Lab assay of single mutants.
Amino acid sequence: MKVIFLKDVKGKGKKGEIKNVADGYANNFLFKQGLAIEATPANLKAL
């Protein structure tokens, strides 16, 4: 799943980066902690 990092995550990505991560990691950690959002066309356009 492509995500947009909202904050720096050690070993994974920096704020503003768009990266592919495992679905479970994105859903269970990044999204719940507010560290990233899904890289949907609408979210990409908002950058």
Rank of each mutant, 00 (worst) to 15 (best):
1 M>K: 11
1 M>W: 11
2 K>I: 10
3 V>Y: 00
3 V>K: 02
3 V>E: 01
4 I>Y: 05
4 I>G: 00
4 I>V: 07
5 F>V: 00
5 F>Q: 01
5 F>P: 01
5 F>M: 06
6 L>F: 07
6 L>M: 11
6 L>Q: 06
6 L>G: 02
7 K>V: 11
8 D>F: 07
8 D>G: 08
8 D>E: 11
9 V>N: 06
9 V>A: 08
9 V>S: 06
9 V>W: 02
10 K>L: 12
10 K>G: 09
10 K>M: 15
10 K>D: 15
11 G>M: 04
11 G>N: 15
11 G>Y: 11
11 G>Q: 08
12 K>S: 14
12 K>A: 14
12 K>C: 10
12 K>Q: 13
12 K>Y: 15
12 K>V: 12
14 K>G: 09
14 K>T: 05
15 K>M: 05
15 K>L: 07
15 K>H: 03
15 K>V: 10
16 G>P: 04
16 G>A: 08
16 G>F: 08
16 G>M: 13
17 E>T: 08
17 E>G: 03
17 E>N: 04
18 I>E: 11
18 I>C: 15
19 K>C: 11
20 N>D: 12
20 N>W: 15
21 V>Y: 11
21 V>D: 02
21 V>A: 07
21 V>T: 04
22 A>S: 14
22 A>Q: 14
22 A>M: 08
23 D>A: 10
23 D>V: 09
24 G>T: 11
24 G>Q: 15
24 G>H: 03
24 G>D: 08
25 Y>P: 02
25 Y>M: 11
25 Y>W: 12
25 Y>C: 09
26 A>V: 02
26 A>E: 03
26 A>R: 03
27 N>I: 12
27 N>K: 03
27 N>M: 10
28 N>H: 14
28 N>D: 12
28 N>K: 10
28 N>C: 09
29 F>G: 09
29 F>Q: 13
29 F>M: 09
29 F>H: 10
30 L>N: 00
30 L>C: 00
30 L>D: 01
31 F>A: 05
31 F>G: 03
31 F>D: 05
31 F>P: 00
31 F>R: 04
31 F>W: 05
31 F>K: 05
32 K>R: 12
34 G>F: 02
34 G>P: 01
35 L>V: 09
35 L>N: 13
35 L>D: 04
35 L>S: 06
36 A>T: 00
36 A>L: 00
36 A>Y: 01
36 A>P: 00
36 A>R: 00
36 A>F: 00
36 A>V: 08
36 A>K: 01
40 T>A: 07
40 T>D: 08
41 P>Y: 13
41 P>I: 14
41 P>Q: 15
42 A>S: 10
42 A>G: 13
42 A>K: 14
42 A>R: 11
43 N>S: 10
43 N>H: 14
44 L>Y: 14
44 L>C: 12
44 L>Q: 13
44 L>N: 07
45 K>F: 02
45 K>V: 08
45 K>H: 12
46 A>Y: 15
46 A>N: 07
47 L>G: 02
